[in-house]
Nucleic acid binder design. Structure first.
Lengths: 215, 215
DNA sequence: TTCTAAATAAGTGCTAACACGTAATTATTA
DNA sequence: TAATAATTACGTGTTAGCACTTATTTAGAA
């Protein structure tokens, strides 16, 4: 495929970065059909122009990159999405993987890395920046994979925990003893293989809140 | 003064941003005599080329922008410094003013704002981005507003809390008493007006993790 | 029907976070 | 210089979550 046949939309709320990305891509022969400097603008441009690839920042005004992707897909968009972010923390990477986003780049990456990612994604592969340390991601993903091991009651309780509801309140709302809830918590901790720390389950549930609540 | 007589050095560890800035400045007739992608490189280039103005990122590898400025001045550099940063929090601004830095821009600023700043600084004025004072709508949430109330120490500790580091470990890493950390936590809770619940601060920090860590 | 998994519940002890107070030492600023 | 804010630190008590264990009832599978 010729580079000029690859349609791209790019979105970032930092004008200089947007310009740098635009110039570098264009001078390398890519066809940038749209730009945006906030989330809602990005969503509109993507839905209207239906590019093959959209390169999105996460932290944008009005809508985050993740929200744009979710909404674009709900509207039936076939665009492939690449996140371009400052964040290399596992929290973001896990979220990107959960959303099944096609690519994840860091703003510290060179153009070489960006171009490589675009090509990989166009060929149907998933590509995450080489600069991301895979270790914690795999650990976190492993825990998410284990979510499937939970029974119905355990899942229900986990959702309540992720909403910062105390054992006592969970017990009350489900008309169960607080000891039952405690036992469920123990079982959940064991199934997810969480480290034995104070409030380990609550902490883990809050960090992975969006994933738990979206299930 | 003609634009092409204005000598500039720019430094940022994000290649795309550096390119965007370079292209935009050059196509507007400015004379960029040097670039750098980390702190030590920036320092070398500034000392060697002695530009009239250096545009520096704060968060760079090896040396921060502030450190570069301090060291360049200690070596007798007459260069005027403009910080180009993501941070609009008061403590960064205060730090910039304490260092008597000539200009402070945000990466969300347009080229118009950047150019205006360069001109002001060249004329011996101090110029801080217009976006710093007016509260941006997209970030005007109550929580973020209250985050501004925190002191430097409190912010530092809050970031560690958001990374699930215990009081004891925070105390150890900062060489402080655990009681000091506890006191800071109490103060943070009060400043943020969090509800009086068990682990209320940890929970809040984890829920708002991305906001806290991106600051 | 027997076996197993899930759901229910309780005993007992430990720990980190937090409430609420006091107070000394530094910075900062008016 | 005086007043204020920030940082440091300790005392004492409370609580929610968790470890580790035992045990009954219910429901589904072999």
């Amino acid at each position: 495929m010729n580079k000029k046949d690859i349609t791209l939309v790019i979105a970032d709320d930092h004008p200089m970065l947007l310009k740098g990305l635009n110039d570098e891509l264009q001078s390398n022969g890519y066809n940038i059909i749209g730009q945006a400097s906030n989330g809602i603008q990005a969503l509109e441009v993507i839905l209207k122009l239906q590019p093959q690839i959209a390169l999105l920042d996460i932290d944008m005004p009005i809508l985050t990159g993740f929200e744009v992707i979710k909404m674009a897909r709900e509207k039936g968009s076939k665009t492939k999405f690449i996140i371009l972010s400052f964040h290399k923390e596992s929290y973001y990477i896990v979220q990107a993987k959960t959303f099944q986003i096609d690519g994840y780049l860091l703003k510290e990456d060179t153009f070489f890395e960006i171009e490589h990612c675009i090509i990989q994604v166009l060929n149907g592969h998933i590509y995450f920046s080489k600069s991301i340390d895979d270790q914690p991601i795999n650990l976190a993903s492993e825990e998410l994979r284990r979510l499937k091991l939970l029974t119905l009651s355990e899942s229900k309780i986990l959702k309540l925990i992720a909403q910062e509801i105390s054992n006592q309140d969970i017990a009350d709302s489900l008309s169960l003893s607080i000891r039952t809830i405690e036992k469920h918590r123990s079982n959940i901790i064991e199934k997810l293989s969480l480290k034995k720390e104070n409030n380990t389950l609550t902490n883990w549930a809050l960090v992975n809140r969006s994933i738990i609540l979206s299930r």
